[in-house]
Amino acid sequence: MFKEVSLGQYYQADSVIHRLDPRVKLVGTLLYMISLFVFNNIFCYAVAALLLASVMMLCKVPVGYMFKGLRAVLFIMLFTVVFNVFFTTGDILFEFGIIHISKEGIKMAVLMLVRLTLLIVSASIMTLTTTPNRLTDGLEKLFRPLKLFKAPVHEVALMMSIALRFIPILSEETDKIVKAQTARGAKFDSKKLIERVKSLIPLIVPLFVSAFRRASDLALAMEARGYHGGEGRTKLYPLKYEGRDFVSYIILALYVAVIVFLGIMSARIVAFLTPENSYLTLFF
């Protein structure tokens, strides 16, 4: 039943974005997220949205998948909007009893909404277009400098990729054990907390026993296949930057430059665009 469960949410397709080096995507997503937090004015968001829209068009993933992530944070988004709209003080636009809605409130709410959407969609695109494996590889390579400080970078990366391989196997196993214990009359749905915790013992003990056995089997198998740590290992698919990766870095650098410029200059642009008392001020 759980055989095809894939972690992350990789969407198989053949696109430029899929083929990009995972390091580019990791660095890119990180910079993109930082840019959204540091600069929060409408010009920056417009540029950010433009970049995201072009990536979305390039990546050949159905739009529905990219926005799926938003559903999980829907509540947070609603909360943010309500909170901002009602509790930001400023020029009152509308008043009813204790409820008052200000110009600043609406502005903040819209900006937060845009920011969250961009954040979630950008993260989704990264996981949708990169296999967990390539992601692990990318992280290992990116964090390699930490090795100088004796950080077990290779080991952590290996652990992550083994975990990813065994999650479907263990979840299938959990299902089997639940069924087997149910057949022995175990009830996993007790209302009382203590009983509920107790009822998990017949599930957790066998699961741990099995996980430990698998771990020791796997360690043996790895040893038998000559594993001796990360030293001197080569790779079937080494991460190698190609033309498109450099181009992406350049685009990224340009993006950062534009965002920083707009961030600094935004006040002046606003002043330039909006004469005193113009209704346009509502947006800036």
Partner: peptide
């Protein structure tokens, strides 16, 4: 479950108690 007993593949994977006797008591209990 008291009428139809099912023995799964590799049923030893469901053992969990400290002693054999306790484990066998699990069902009737």
């Amino acid at each position: 479950h008291g009428k139809v007993g099912i023995v799964f593949q590799y049923p030893e994977n469901q053992l969990f108690e400290e002693t054999v006797f306790k484990d066998v008591c699990f069902g009737p209990k």
